[in-house]
């Protein structure tokens, strides 16, 4: 059994304009020590999926009854996250088995409480540690993520740290309770490239050291290539393609993945034209029927069955799946 297994996850939001589908029929697994990259553009449902793992979506969220999110912590009974109803039951998941780091560290730290007090608070909530021990452990964690003079930094406020330092402190805080699963939602998007490279190094080191599973959410395929073992490409709430990161990037089977890769400016070929994906991302209120990508897919002929039927996830190579009807799998007669 993998650490996390998500089956048939469908998430809708009640709004004034009616029920909006944000995520539809999503399946994936994350094993301990594995990094799953979730890549997608705005409106792809990647953050909504991540928040569902801790039931952090707003009160207007409707989880389809067929959805399952099962957390298997070794030595404990499997836990169905979506069946947890009371806030106090959620504590074993939020910050306990699962921690999360966010895109904007300035917005995730409380501005008027020192970094240290925030780190100590969560440790006393989730572990048996006393205040003194929690403080000592927090200093060790700050040191571990490469913050110099951690015994001074711990008494500072978030605004006194630079962007890169703040994100390191955020990571230290998320990992100090030794979660089994870390959700990183665009953790490097707000950082400069040189700082991003350092934070990615740090995250790779920490996976090797702590062995937790990571769900790494980003819009940047380059960041995925640098960190993930497996990748899932999402578009408008559906997984279009998933598989080992090398396979998906080198042999993308779905037109959306191919389009994303072609739209990226590449440094090794400055003459390659930039090819945008035709059209715009549709509004969530105008969700296309059939395969959600069909209105932007240049390879489809009018009247194709993708306009009315949602294709299944078809295996293309071992562990590599794409949302294609079996007759459209590349290399098939």
């Amino acid at each position: 059994m993998s650490l996390l297994s998500v089956r048939d996850l469908t998430i809708r939001f009640r709004t004034d304009e009616g029920l909006i589908t944000a995520v539809e029929g999503v399946d994936f697994d994350i094993a301990a020590g594995e990094v799953l990259g979730l890549v997608g553009e705005s409106g792809s449902g990647k953050s909504v999926t991540a928040k569902a793992l801790m039931q952090l979506n707003g009160k207007n969220t409707v989880y389809d009854p067929a959805s399952h999110i099962v957390l298997n912590v070794p030595g404990q009974d499997p836990l169905e996250v979506l069946s947890l109803r009371r806030e106090r039951d959620m504590i074993q998941v939020r910050g306990g088995a699962i921690s999360m780091i966010f895109q904007e560290p300035m917005a995730s730290f409380a501005p008027a409480i020192t970094i240290g007090d925030q780190m100590v608070e969560q440790l006393t909530l989730h572990t048996e540690m006393g205040k003194k021990q929690a403080r000592k452990h927090s200093i060790e964690m700050l040191d571990r993520v490469g913050i110099k003079e951690p015994d001074k930094r711990i008494d500072q406020y978030a605004f006194e740290l630079s962007g890169g330092m703040r994100q390191r402190a955020m990571i230290a805080m998320a990992l100090s309770t030794t979660p089994k699963l870390l959700i990183a939602d665009e953790p490097t998007t707000a950082l400069d490239v040189t700082i991003q490279a350092q934070v990615l190094d740090l995250m790779r080191d920490l996976v090797a050291e702590f062995g937790m599973g990571i769900m790494f959410i980003t819009h940047d395929l380059g960041v995925i290539a640098q960190t993930a073992d497996r990748v899932a490409v999402m578009y408008l709430g559906r997984i279009m393609e998933t598989g080992p990161v090398r396979e998906v990037i080198r042999n993308p089977a779905h037109a959306y993945t191919q389009g994303l890769i072609n739209a990226l400016p590449k440094l090794d070929d400055l003459d390659a034209p930039l090819t945008p994906i035709a059209g715009d991302i549709p509004s969530p209120l105008e969700r296309p029927s059939g395969c959600v990508f069909h209105p932007r897919n240049p390879t489809l002929k009018p009247g194709s069955r993708y306009e009315t039927e949602a294709p299944p996830m078809t295996e293309i190579a071992p562990g590599h799946f794409a949302a294609l009807f079996p007759e459209d799998v590349p290399g098939q007669p």
């Binding site: 040189t194 490279a197 640098q226 990161v245 090398r246 990037i249 890769i261």
Partner: peptide, 21 residues
């Protein structure tokens, strides 16, 4: 050079440590 090496490569086998300027 530091800036160039910090751009995440699309090649999963081209993983290298960050350069610090």
């Amino acid at each position: 050079k530091t800036l160039l090496s910090a751009i995440p490569s699309l090649d999963p086998d081209d993983r290298h440590r960050a350069r610090v300027y």
